[in-house]
Computed example of a mutant assay.
Amino acid sequence: MKAGDELPPLTIPVTRTLIVAGALASRDYQDVHHDAEAAREKGSPDIFMNILTTNGLVGRYLTDHFGPRCTLRKVAIRLGAPNYPGDTMVLSGTVTEVTDDGTAVVRIVGANGIGHHVTGTVTVSLPEGAV
């Protein structure tokens, strides 16, 4: 692994169930994550995914790639275009830095039909011998 390496993309169908289940699992009871009528009253066309669900999906993307023994040391993400039901988010990553101590920095982008839903970087410690 070296700087510039690209991770294979991960395609995630954004379903109403995923949005609601993610909000419930993270104890985010804001109505815009489960009540379409309330979301519309607040100016959104539908319910939308919360940042904690997005954060979990980013973590899954990296642990699926690097393996369950990797450790996410720092997650610095920012939300952009909302993830609405019926869309698809494609996560992609590029390694920007690898150190001798087994740490990698990965630039993450999660794009949907509107634009970039999530962007940021994640610092990952890899198991010994993985670099």
Rank of each mutant, 00 (worst) to 15 (best):
A81G: 12
M89F: 02
D87P: 02
L79S: 13
T71S: 06
I77Y: 01
T71M: 09
G67P: 00
V75A: 07
T63V: 15
L72K: 08
L72N: 09
M89W: 00
M89G: 00
V90Q: 15
P68N: 00
A76C: 11
R78L: 07
T96R: 13
T63F: 03
V75F: 05
M89I: 13
V75T: 14
A76R: 15
S92Q: 12
D64L: 13
V75R: 05
F66C: 04
L79Y: 07
I77H: 00
G93D: 05
M89A: 10
T88R: 15
T96Y: 09
G93V: 04
T96E: 15
M89P: 02
L79W: 02
P82K: 04
T94M: 08
I77S: 03
L79K: 05
H65C: 07
R69P: 01
T63D: 01
R78E: 11
R73Y: 01
I77F: 03
G67I: 01
G67N: 03
T88K: 14
P68M: 02
I77E: 00
P82M: 09
T96D: 12
P85M: 05
P85S: 06
T63H: 06
T71P: 01
T63K: 10
A81T: 15
V75N: 08
V75K: 09
P85C: 06
R73Q: 07
K74S: 11
R69I: 01
P82W: 10
F66M: 01
V95G: 08
L79V: 10
L91P: 09
H65Q: 08
P85Y: 07
S92Y: 05
L79N: 10
T96K: 14
G67W: 00
